[in-house]
Simulated assay, not measured.
Amino acid sequence: MNGNDLAIRAEGLTKRFGSTEALRGLDLHAEAGTVLAVLGPNGAGKTTAVRILTTLLKPDSGCAEIAGFDVVRDAAKLRAHIGLTGQYAAVDEHLTGRENLELIGRLYHLGRRDAQRRAAWLLERFDLTDAAGRLVKTYSGGMRRRLDLAASLVMAPPVLILDEPTTGLDPRSRLAVWEVVEELVTAGTTVLLTTQYLEEADRLATRIAVVDGGRVIAEGTSDELKARVGGERLEITLEAGDDTSKAAEVLAAHGHGEIHLARARNSLSVPVSDGARRLAEIVRDLDAAGVHVVDFGVRRPTLDDVFLTLTGHTTAGETEEDEGREAA
């Protein structure tokens, strides 16, 4: 990949907070007009990376450029070329929704009418038109989140950085965000998206970087990453409280990899070959072993399977407090 084609380039980023290594040689690359999804659990280093890339934090070592500007040497110039939506809404609660957006437009030197038109379009896009004249302090958490996202899009910047943008949104609002992101990318915007929502990464990302422990442990398209897991997986769910040991013995005879047990759902899964063709045989063996199956099926790998295979845990493996301590 030619470095001149990159809208986002980060190499060897490190950052330590006391005894905690938040980043341990993080590399990220995104071509112009694409979406790079950074996928990982809270505490993996995603937010620390975002703060460095948006000039809010200086790395201990390594380098990064956004839209051709160095995040340390050219910090002041860079801020005019990026948009940022963080994990928490950053709007003025003593202004109305419309006033917030129009103010941002004027700060970016839009004319009054252009700022008003842009604000009206974004309010409609994020289903906030009816609340546009209300003070933001009267908004619900989800409404504030939508307004914060709209604020980051007032100028349609060449590079947009979204840090878990749809956390806490209802499905309808999440879909609206996805559609706006897709429109921006079609128009040439480069997006860096951190997320824990696997469906979000699957839909939006041109490439995905899987992050764990402060470094990228795998990178590629969604299909490339899924190919690393390989094949199909047989998944069965047992009646609540049933012993899983007999089921595990049957699956071990038919599968060709490690059996994963999800205790919360009392389900097991294992990689299989020709799973659909052998499904009847597996069901007969489970029945003969006295295993009471309430659900079963063969499915293709998901990004959750990829993350589980690469890290040994799912994207929900840590808490939000862990991420807060990371950047404390």
Score class of each variant (00 low, 15 high):
residue 2 N to D: 15
residue 16 R to P: 01
residue 17 F to H: 08
residue 17 F to A: 02
residue 33 G to H: 11
residue 33 G to M: 04
residue 40 G to P: 14
residue 51 R to W: 00
residue 55 T to V: 09
residue 56 L to E: 12
residue 56 L to A: 14
residue 64 A to D: 03
residue 67 A to I: 09
residue 69 F to E: 07
residue 77 K to N: 12
residue 83 G to Q: 13
residue 84 L to T: 02
residue 84 L to K: 09
residue 88 Y to A: 11
residue 89 A to W: 08
residue 91 V to A: 04
residue 95 L to Q: 06
residue 104 I to E: 05
residue 106 R to A: 10
residue 110 L to A: 04
residue 120 A to L: 06
residue 125 R to T: 15
residue 128 L to A: 14
residue 134 R to P: 06
residue 135 L to A: 10
residue 136 V to R: 04
residue 149 L to R: 00
residue 155 M to S: 12
residue 155 M to W: 01
residue 160 L to V: 06
residue 161 I to L: 08
residue 163 D to R: 07
residue 171 P to R: 05
residue 172 R to N: 10
residue 177 V to E: 02
residue 183 E to V: 01
residue 184 L to K: 05
residue 185 V to Q: 03
residue 185 V to F: 05
residue 192 L to I: 03
residue 197 Y to Q: 07
residue 200 E to H: 01
residue 203 R to V: 11
residue 224 E to T: 05
residue 226 K to V: 02
residue 227 A to E: 14
residue 229 V to T: 12
residue 230 G to Y: 10
residue 231 G to S: 09
residue 231 G to L: 07
residue 234 L to V: 01
residue 234 L to E: 06
residue 239 E to M: 02
residue 243 D to Q: 09
residue 247 A to W: 03
residue 252 A to D: 13
residue 257 G to D: 05
residue 258 E to H: 05
residue 260 H to G: 13
residue 260 H to N: 11
residue 261 L to G: 09
residue 263 R to C: 05
residue 266 N to Q: 15
residue 270 V to M: 04
residue 270 V to R: 08
residue 273 S to D: 15
residue 274 D to Q: 15
residue 276 A to G: 07
residue 277 R to I: 12
residue 285 D to W: 08
residue 299 R to P: 10
residue 305 D to M: 03
residue 310 L to S: 05
residue 311 T to P: 06
residue 313 H to Q: 14
residue 320 E to N: 03
residue 322 D to F: 02
residue 327 A to T: 14
